[in-house]
Structure formats: C-alpha cells, structure tokens
C-alpha cells in the first residue's frame, strides 16, 4: 500500500515536470518534439544512475524505489508521446523528421541509460570501497 502511495505521489511530480517541459518548449503536433526527447533522455540517464547505485543497496526501502523509479521517473518519461508524435509526423509525410526523431530517441535513450548505469555502478563501487577501508588507513595517510 505504501509503495502505491509513493508511486501516486511520484507520478504527480513526474507528470508535473513533464508538463512544465512541454509548456516551456512548446511544439506543434507535426514539429520536432524537443521537450519529449529532453525528458526521455534525462530520465533514462538518471534512472540508470539509480539502478546502478542506490537501488543495489540493501538499505534502500522498496517504497522509495517505487516512488522515484516507477513514480517520478516513470511518469516523467513517456513512450506514448513519442509514438503519437511519430504517427502525426508520419501522417504529415515528414519521413526524415520521423526517422531522425526515432533514431535520437532510441539510440539516445539506450546510450544514456548505459552511461547512467555505468556511472552509478562505478560510484557505488567506490563508495563501498571507501566504507570498507580501515579507518587507520585514512588517518595514517595524513601528513
């Protein structure tokens, strides 16, 4: 139940941020949807960092993962808006625009998710190494 409440609250925030991006970077139905591309790439990168780091800690409560992952980032990013734009751009016969948007979304999303995961895993590894190092090592290292 707590997880569902966290997802609902996160969903309000994520949808609000996406709506804000749409209002700040408005686009026509058949124009290049920069706002959608931006939120999707940012969201994929941030979720990658979290999935590689915070998510892997046993102390991270499941409601927090649900609230931030499924809630905030899940609703901040959107696939339906990508599909809707592609259908409308395609109906307008702007094939190159549709191809460019598809490539930017799919390749960009996968590359940024991979970069985020890599960054998150690396940071988490260093954090654990630092936490596991004996205290004397650090104080001895001081001049």
């Amino acid at each position: 139940m707590g997880a569902y409440l966290a997802v609902f609250a996160g969903g309000l925030l994520g949808t609000g941020l996406r709506l804000g991006a749409d209002l700040l970077l408005p686009h026509d139905d058949t124009g290049f949807p920069f706002s959608t591309l931006l939120v999707n790439l940012v969201g994929a990168f941030v979720l990658g960092i979290l999935a590689g780091g915070l998510w892997t800690r046993p102390t991270t409560p499941s409601w927090l993962k649900a609230g931030i992952g499924a809630g905030v980032l899940g609703s901040f990013t959107t696939l339906s808006a990508v599909m809707a734009s592609l259908v409308l751009i395609g109906t307008d016969r702007q094939w190159w625009l549709a191809a460019g948007y598809t490539a930017a979304s799919v390749i960009g999303g996968l590359v940024l998710a991979a970069a985020g995961l890599r960054l998150g895993i690396g940071r988490e590894r260093r954090r654990r190494a630092a936490a596991a190092a004996p205290r004397t090592t650090r104080s001895d290292a001081a001049p």
């Binding site: 949808t15 999707n40 499924a70 980032l73 609703s75 339906s80 996968l110 940024l112 998710a113 995961l117």
Partner: peptide, 21 residues
C-alpha cells in the same frame, strides 16, 4: 488523457534501462 494518463502509464526510462540491463 494524452499528456496526463497515457504519459503516466507509459515510460521511456524503465524501457531503456531494462533493455540495457
């Protein structure tokens, strides 16, 4: 319905990260 419900129902971030994983 589109920006709200469908935008919330669908997700790009989970799709990207789970594919990479």
């Amino acid at each position: 319905l589109v920006t709200g419900f469908c935008g919330g129902l669908t997700t790009f971030s989970t799709w990207s990260v789970e594919s990479i994983e």
